[in-house]
Amino acid sequence: MKSIILMAAVALLSTTACQAQIKNAKTATVKVYGNCGMCETTIEKAANKTKVSTVDWNEETKMATITYDSKKTNVDAVLKNIALAGYDNQSFLAPDAAYNKLPGCCKYDREKKTAMLTQPAKDTMTTMQNHTNHQHDGMVNATQETNQLTAVFDSYFSLKDALVKTDGTIASAKAKDLQKAINAVKMEKLAMDVHNSWMKVLNNLKEDAEHINITKDIAHQRDYFMSLSTNMYALIKVAKPTETVYYQYCPMANEGKGANWLSKESGVKNPYYGAQMLTCGKTVETIK
């Protein structure tokens, strides 16, 4: 109990200390697009300025809490710096060059960017910053690329359903479909960020799918399904599903260490235990 009080006191002290640095402090919470912990570091580094502004970005909610000296700066000035570091936000779109410089894992989806109107305008942009080609291809091929990966995701969902039903034979067959879908993907047509993500998970996806395919032992299949799900999750985060997908979690699976899976339905149907504990688990993230 004592230690809790102490911790609380320390926490309190440190917050007041932080705020004491910034005079005329105002706070705003705004959307900043990003993916991962690395993004958080970059975003906060771009926006933190001693005695002028501090930013706390939340990876889960993509919301940044900006505390700033209202006499020295404003929210837009801070957001501009964040955008110049490569991160789109509610006021500014990052320059393409800055976005392209981000490490692969940080290449979030640029939801706010609207497609260029005319062909000439697009040409202009590409010549202007010669490394933006991928960016534009990405936009043009956006639909095509989702179609490609849809087959992969659909096979995965069928496989999951088979596991929910605790049917090793169907699971094995669905894993075969998944293998085919994976091999059918023309990765050169993927947008650059999706492509990067795809490259990272490809070998693991293949391996897991193969293992599930060659056995009919449901326990083995569920073991491989754990890592398969983790990789699918990483991929779908970047590639964006065509419809809402739920990332779900069962704390008991994996011998009490917990495991995740993806589902098209918000209701929990546990692929690790099936009928044994069908509704054990919860949705931890909704991916749109």
Partner: peptide, 8 residues
């Protein structure tokens, strides 16, 4: 709308 920045 949202402001597209130029590379400095």
């Amino acid at each position: 709308g949202i402001k597209q920045l130029m590379t400095p």
